[in-house]
Design a binder for these strands. Sequence first.
DNA 1: GTCTATAGACGGATAGAC
DNA 2: GTCTATCCGTCTATAGAC
Lengths: 200, 200
Amino acid sequence: MGTATTRTSSARVEARRAQTRRDILDSAWRLAADSGLEALSLREIAASLSMQAPSLYSYFPSKAAILDALFIDGYRVLDDVLAAVDEILRAWIGFCQADQARYRLLFTNAVPGWAPSTDAYSASLANYQHLCTQLAHAGVTDPDDIDLCTALSAGLVAQQMANDPDGDRWARRIDDVVDMYLQHTASRARRAARLRKGNS
Amino acid sequence: MGTATTRTSSARVEARRAQTRRDILDSAWRLAADSGLEALSLREIAASLSMQAPSLYSYFPSKAAILDALFIDGYRVLDDVLAAVDEILRAWIGFCQADQARYRLLFTNAVPGWAPSTDAYSASLANYQHLCTQLAHAGVTDPDDIDLCTALSAGLVAQQMANDPDGDRWARRIDDVVDMYLQHTASRARRAARLRKGNS
DNA sequence: GTCTATAGACGGATAGAC
DNA sequence: GTCTATCCGTCTATAGAC
């Protein structure tokens, strides 16, 4: 029937439109990364796709709408990354709070005259490796940044366990801390990239 | 002598020029804080001083020169603040590393069955108050931000003492951590200010 | 030193032909 | 849908009168 044909055709057209919208956003991300967000102009976006600026208005009603779409894009990725790192920290603090004795054995030098054997210590190293893998997924690979993460985690846990063992005075700030940490590592990575670019 | 008069006069003129330059920069800071750095325009700066835009060219050769002067301004303040907070953290880690036993007594629950008396504990509270005062000088007053600071410090010290007691693997990252921390608290403060403004 | 007037570039957005 | 042509705004910066 004609109706069916029309429906199929409009679905195809719709998919094509969606793809072009995606292309516009991808180009915009690339241009913003290259030349800065301020330099992002409709003419530039259009040119990078071999289009003319007014044609973009077939896909987005305004430049603000494009920026809105980019904004939503960005938060989708951020949410994923934050969830992953948050999860580790939250799980860790929960683990510590669940059993004070266990916490003290594993993470503080609480037993006089005792230190873990090489074998025992390797268990904690495996845990450390696991953390490194998770951090790599969040884009953190610099050894200095990993040290910073362990310090941050250790600090949160220590303060929580020492001053508010059954509450959440520090634990409730995990989101905030992860946000701070990732923002910092990302800006360090950007600085490093700029230096590499400048020296080449 | 005429020479002396001329010299005095030109010194006075020079002082007047310097003051106007200062006024321009102060107005620029205020406008940038109010309306955003991107919205900073020569017309706006001039208007805020009841001048016309071209007159600014008598004091600065270009807009870039004004931004340069602001940049230098900003770093002078930043350096002062960083030095103050850095100093505390650095001194604290040095204090801990100087005497392992003292560190363990003061900052870890290292002695089984013992906890400080109320009197003894008040000594540590005084130290905490001192930290709060110093943080206030750096613009940090939010209780949550203070908790974050103690967690950061405790984490750095704990990692340093546990894993590299005689080295500086974590201590050498103090600058970086203070930078991260102050940037984070400042951006939280900005967000809060924006909310207050939006709701009023 | 300060002004008016304006050059010259670039931005977003719209009209209308095809 | 895509184009050309164009409007209108804002910006930095300069020329030249006073």
